[in-house]
Amino acid sequence: MNKSILTKREKEVFELIIENYTTTEIALKLKISEKTVRNHISNVMQKLGVKGRASAVVELLKLGELSI
């Protein structure tokens, strides 16, 4: 089985981030709170050891976790 470093939810959040969804729009689409969206993003940045969302996206692209 192919183990991802992201949880299913974290992947869903970032897939919407690269489609230009705002935090509010992501929360609405996934039916979660904005605070939860921000937590997911923050967790991923911590896992990757990066400081910004853009850096997180780059690392996830390089790791094959996200695709354009």
């Binding site: 981030i17 690269i18 230009n20 969302r53 853009a54 997180a56 996206v57 780059v58 692209l61 390089k62 695709s67 354009i68």
Partner: peptide
């Protein structure tokens, strides 16, 4: 789409 000789010039997470 896997890419070749990749070059990342991303500064934002918008419009990638």
């Amino acid at each position: 789409s896997y890419g070749i000789n990749r070059d990342y010039s991303i500064t934002s997470y918008h419009d990638i």
